[in-house]
């Protein structure tokens, strides 16, 4: 058999590889380009439907300045940071722990794993409504169960602090399975012989995890972290049905704000500008992950 040098192969491969990338690139960029460009154009224009049917012209960065100075916007950013921060930390810890605890291919572990990813299956709007009835102060199951062990449950959805905790709980309940699933797949792909070698060398389970598995898992875990963070920041349906942003402005998040501006109040300029502010933040997060991943290689 004639053996060609590996470099020849690499050059020969390039058209193939480009062909691999093109369909995805086309679908994502071609279809989404116009909406994004449109939104970018709106961000620098004055257009509120209650004032005018057409955009009212270029206003530069005025929309951005207005949004950053807006009390409601700032409050919604603060709420978002609290909710997402709390939820994502809980999800990462619980998700990775559960991924380790459910390793294995016995039917029992498979059943447990399938059970644990179920919350993710529920439509967020239904999950929000379900938890609204569960967390009901008077007629809710949660406070009823708490009362059985002698605890007087809080006014989950009517107190500003507990409402934030409720939203965090819902997010954690619904999305820990995401971390479990991705981390589980990542752990499963760690070559078994690596761990065997460590075991033979007499390393403790904890040390094996810390020095062998964790470094291997880090890129995927970071990715999961950023995904969960941005996803959680973007979540709308569940907050809409659980608290509707209330009581008052207590759980009014950034996405809720953008939604209200864009599709309820039809302040297109303001909604576009706040979306771009959000994207500036998202970009920094994504860039940070790239930077971390780079360091590992």
């Amino acid at each position: 058999m004639l053996r060609k040098p590996a470099t020849w192969h690499r050059r020969h491969d390039v058209p193939w590889l480009i062909a691999f990338v093109l369909p995805a690139f086309f679908i994502v960029v071609a279809v989404q380009f116009y909406p994004l460009a449109y939104s970018a154009a709106l961000a620098v224009q004055e257009w509120s439907l209650t004032k005018s049917q057409e955009p009212e012209g270029f206003v530069g960065l005025e929309n951005f300045v207005e949004e950053l100075g807006d009390e409601t916007f700032r409050r919604s950013v603060r709420n978002s940071v609290l909710i997402t921060g709390g939820a994502v930390i809980l999800e990462m810890i619980l998700g990775v722990c559960l991924a380790y605890l459910t390793m294995g291919s016995s039917w029992r572990m498979r059943a447990v794993r399938t059970t644990l990813i179920l919350p993710m299956v529920i439509a967020p709007v239904a999950a929000g409504t379900l938890w609204r009835i569960l967390l009901n102060y008077r007629a809710g199951l949660v406070n009823h169960l708490l009362s059985l062990i002698g605890i007087q449950g809080p006014e989950w959805l009517a107190s500003p602090d507990w409402a934030i905790i409720s939203v965090i709980l819902l997010d954690t309940w619904q999305w820990t399975p995401f971390v479990l699933l991705v981390a589980g797949a990542a752990i499963a792909s760690i070559p078994g012989d690596l761990l065997e070698v460590a075991a033979i060398d007499g390393a403790s389970r904890w040390k094996t995890f810390l020095y062998i598995e964790l470094p291997l898992l880090t890129p995927l875990l970071l990715l999961t972290l950023v995904f969960r963070m941005l996803e959680s920041l973007l979540s709308l349906d569940s907050i809409y049905s659980l608290t509707f942003g209330g009581p008052g402005y207590s759980t009014y998040t950034m996405t809720f704000y953008i939604y209200t501006q864009g599709l309820r109040n039809f302040n297109f300029g303001a909604a576009a500008a706040s979306s771009w502010i959000f994207m500036a933040f998202a970009s920094v997060s994504i860039a940070l992950v790239f930077w971390f991943q780079r360091k590992d290689w």
Binding site: V28, G262, L263, A272, I286
Partner: peptide, 15 residues
């Protein structure tokens, strides 16, 4: 890719 993924869909609904 990620930028497109995470852009708030609410503002691109109309375009």
């Amino acid at each position: 890719f990620l930028f497109i993924r995470f852009y708030p869909r609410v503002t691109t609904v109309i375009p």
